[in-house]
């Protein structure tokens, strides 16, 4: 196989084979052991279908996405300008970096009791948790992006005698954008991890809640699909 058709096939077929093999093994093992706690893949599909049909699934997905959207959006609004500033102004870096490096390794789970205390059990708690867990990776990534700009870009711009403001706007920001996007990818990943954990503990809606809720019912297949 070669040429235009061969390339997409080579890209799509191997992961599909792995997926199909995993489902086949899952199905075979569950059927062979007649397990009471593991549903078959088909039971998971029908479980998810039921939830999707009565609208519960979309409600919970919507609730989770709303929290991630707001928390992550706020984190981007804070982290990107602050990260650029810390990268560009040495004094700002020296002043704030130690504090952020200390706050950054605190587990988002450890913030949960404080979040509940401060914001109650509504939407604000998970939004705060998402914000606090995704803001630091993005800030660090943006700052280090500014620090690792190739010197020749800055020197080339300096040769044209541009002001510091123009240099920042025309050279620094475009040069750092790829790092900012990497930071956003890390941030949205963390945000999605955290929203599920937060909903398991504090809330009555969202995918995390749905998992915990279905765990307590006989509909164990639900837990696997969306658990649905």
């Amino acid at each position: 196989m070669s040429g235009a058709i061969g390339e997409p096939v080579r890209r799509v077929v191997p992961p599909l084979l792995v997926l199909a093999a995993a489902v086949a093994v899952w199905w075979a093992v569950v059927s062979a052991t007649r397990s009471a706690i593991f549903p078959t893949p088909w039971q998971v599909v029908t479980g998810a279908w039921e939830l999707a049909e009565d609208g519960t699934l979309w409600e919970h997905i919507g609730a989770s996405l709303f929290r991630v959207g707001v928390g992550f959006g706020l984190a981007v609004l804070v982290a990107v300008p602050f990260g650029l500033w810390m990268g560009w102004v040495l004094a700002a870096y020296r002043t704030f970096n130690p504090v952020f490096q200390m706050l950054r390794p605190i587990s988002p789970i450890a913030w949960i009791p404080l979040a509940i205390l401060w914001f109650g059990v509504g939407d604000l708690s998970p939004i705060f948790l998402i914000f606090i867990s995704s803001v630091f990776p993005m800030m660090v990534q943006t700052t280090s992006g500014v620090h690792t700009i190739e010197r020749r870009y800055l020197r080339a711009a300096a040769n044209f005698g541009v002001s510091r403001t123009v240099l920042f706007r025309r050279v620094v920001i475009p040069a750092v954008l790829p790092e900012i996007i990497v930071g956003m990818r890390i941030g949205i990943g963390v945000a999605w991890l955290v929203v599920v954990a937060a909903e398991m503990i504090a809330l009555r809606s969202g995918l995390g809640y749905l998992i915990m809720d279905s765990r307590a019912t006989p509909a164990i297949a639900t837990t696997w699909s969306s658990p649905a």
């Binding site: 998810a48 990943g189 999605w192 969306s226």
Partner: peptide
């Protein structure tokens, strides 16, 4: 859980789409 994984994948792909924005292209096509 499978749905959570799938949505996470979609969110990541959505963020990656930003890499195609015009001000960024110069960096990748170099």
């Amino acid at each position: 859980m499978i749905i959570i994984g799938l949505i996470g994948l979609l969110l990541d792909s959505g963020t990656r789409l930003l890499e195609g924005l015009r001000p960024l292209r110069w960096r990748y096509v170099r």
